[in-house]
Design a protein around this nucleic acid. Structure first.
Lengths: 339, 339
DNA sequence: CAACATCCTGCAAGCGCTCGCAGTAACCGT
DNA sequence: ACGGTTACTGCGAGCGCTTGCAGGATGTTG
């Protein structure tokens, strides 16, 4: 059955190439693994044969033998969320460039699945990229102990991570609104246990305090479109002239509700989003938003991981990326006092 | 160095479990692979030991031995595109439920990378899911010959595929506009070589013809936000009262430009998108759009693949999913003739 | 109670590649 | 011309699991 029947449909093995090139399988292997160890002419012969047969070394077998998979695991709460999608894309691109494949796992925001997936993937990848992990510290610790990991957008002591604190951007946003004459802003918080929501809340509160701006808080809320819409009315009732949302999606909810009520943006109310996703740029009016360097987040995470892999002794570092405010059409001068 | 030092950090192997449970490695293996072949009490003992040691079988080794990887390759043009993101999510979820992992590859819309990636992945997955493949027929054929494949959203003869022709939905859209009194609509086409763009063009043209609607076409265009915006002016100038865009993103571009010019939607002009992505639901005004069952696309693709895998003799089938119009706020009665 | 079917379990041979070790040939210096 | 290098290449032992085959223990039947 199986053997050197070249013509068959079965994928050729190193052995077939070896035979075709008149060398041993080891040499074929070396031609791919460490080309410099093989005499140029031999190598040429082997490569030619490989090419002719359409040979591609089996990564599976190689992984088993080498003890490393050249694969990264990527665990994400929700790929359909543009925020994460961009990170995934960046990770994927970077990894590929470094000749790493990526296993993608979407947890659908379930911390349990997250944990389970992490453990499952642990054995079959060289490293795990945990994007905005929801699982608790204990479990996270356990995962980290089993497999080299890098956390993205969540800072955990002892775990290398790359984080964009969006603090700068939010400060800029508050300053921007202040400069436009706004004196009372509404802040819409994100999910209850979200690390980033807390960070953002702090940042806005602090910045507002510095400028003696009044801020009314709403939430925590699931960061959904409809919750944004819902809060819009409350914010208006509270008398805020500017609304800063936890993320773009919520900001769009606000925009939508305001339009429905005939409230003009930015004439009557200004709205600021966060993350600067596709949603922000395609909104009407285009959304002023705090840009997080999402692609950089992904890339740096991969880099960090790779560096870590070939020098495990390296101390866990935490990379901070900074954010910036992107001003678009949804923010403008505060309306004149009516009274 | 390496051996049965249980306490060490190294992941435990089947051998360790075997020893702990007082059986042979084969038995341990069987406990996971074919549980019924092992006496219940023995199995319990083994599973307990495995649990205690935190043993997880190595998928790599298993793959090598079994000759199958329990992994699906998923090749996508652009994960950051919400359209594809949803498909990816569905595929991922479905695959996981069936105990398959998924390798994700983003080609960034490059047909060459697509081909290369497909060939590379071919060796390390059981099957390949090609989402909206851009590569030409010849190469596609070659890929298909090397590895079981399923095409998503592109119909290719001889290749099993699952496609949502969006024909129904577009017909509904045209009928909807017609019923609202529109008699002249603008059609914005997608990318030049896009299979789906052609399909959609045909569908709209045909439906319009049936209803004796005048249609002015624009494009083909890269399906981007700004091209949508650009075309908005042209469509207006042409006298269309309704605009059907190739996808939601372009429709949003239209919306944006119209708002900028003070043209009211839907009072002055109606706009219809396609794909019914997140963008459509979060737009202001919410976008009437043709819904494609994206998640079903992904799920069915996986199902098709798996069925194919355990019965390779099965003839390539093409699954057609149907689409429907989702009416939202961006479409309304045609404005009265001004003349 | 012998003869045989039935269940479990262990043995050992791979799966396709990597890599340490050893053998061979070509090359150098003196 | 000979010992010592150096540069390649082949050998063979795994990597951790699966699985056909065979042996031992039990159970069944006449």
């Amino acid at each position: 059955m199986r053997s050197n029947d070249r013509s068959s449909g079965a994928a050729p093995g190193a052995e077939d190439v070896a035979e075709a090139a008149g060398v041993s399988p080891s040499t074929v292997s070396r031609c791919f693994a460490s080309p410099h160890q093989v005499r140029p002419e031999t190598r040429a012969r082997v490569l030619a044969a490989a090419e002719r047969l359409g040979y591609r070394p089996s990564r599976i077998a190689r992984s088993l033998a080498e003890g490393r998979t050249r694969t990264l695991g990527l665990i994400v709460p929700d790929i359909a969320n543009p925020f994460f999608a961009v990170i995934v894309k960046a990770v994927q691109a970077r990894a590929r460039r470094k000749d790493y494949a990526v296993f993608l796992a979407d947890t659908d925001e379930h911390p349990d699945d997250e944990y389970e997936l992490a453990l499952t993937l642990a054995r079959q990848v060289d490293g795990l990229l945990l994007v905005a992990p929801r699982m608790d510290g204990a479990r996270l610790g356990e995962v980290v102990r089993q497999v080299p990991s890098v956390a993205v957008n969540r800072s955990v002591s002892g775990v290398p991570s790359v984080v964009a604190p969006s603090e700068d951007g939010l400060r800029q946003a508050v300053a921007h609104l202040h400069a436009l004459g706004h004196r009372h802003l509404a802040l819409i918080l994100g999910a209850r246990n979200s690390w980033s929501s807390e960070q953002r809340g702090h940042a806005v509160r602090y910045a507002a305090e510095q400028l003696e701006l009044k801020v009314t808080e709403f939430g925590p809320h699931e960061p959904k479109f409809h919750t944004g819409a819902q809060v819009a009315d409350l914010a208006l009732a509270a008398g805020a002239t500017a609304i800063v949302a936890h993320n773009d999606l919520m900001a769009l909810g606000v925009l939508s509700r305001l339009a429905e009520r005939g409230v003009r943006v930015p004439d009557d109310v200004s709205v600021v989003g966060a993350d600067d996703t596709l949603l922000a740029t395609t909104a009407t009016p285009a959304l002023t938003s705090v840009r997080i360097p999402l692609d950089a987040l992904g890339e740096r995470a991969v880099d960090l991981m790779l560096r870590r892999l070939d020098d495990p002794s390296r101390v866990p570092e935490e990379l901070l990326l900074d954010s910036e405010l992107i001003v678009r059409r949804s923010t403008g001068p505060a309306p004149r006092k009516e009274s």
